[in-house]
């Protein structure tokens, strides 16, 4: 839940693919689902390597 993450002041937030499978997609073929997982994780890696500054 991104609004909750923002409310509590998390610094690096990446939107997942839904509450029921943040890093998955039940409606995709397995290969595509795994690619989606890699893509979200790559976004997380980018965030981890950037200065996130202060939250407001």
């Amino acid at each position: 839940m991104v609004p909750v993450a923002k409310m509590v002041g998390a610094n690096r937030i990446i939107q997942g693919n839904g509450i029921v499978h943040p890093l998955g997609a039940a409606d995709l073929p397995p290969a595509e689902e795994k690619e989606l997982r890699r893509r979200i994780l790559r976004e997380a890696f980018e965030a981890l390597q950037k200065d996130a500054g202060e939250t407001d």
Partner: peptide
């Protein structure tokens, strides 16, 4: 919710 200082970025992901 007090502001949380952001931890510094990872300098070298390939070693993290």
């Amino acid at each position: 919710f007090p502001a949380i200082p952001a931890p510094p970025p990872i300098a070298d992901l390939s070693r993290a």
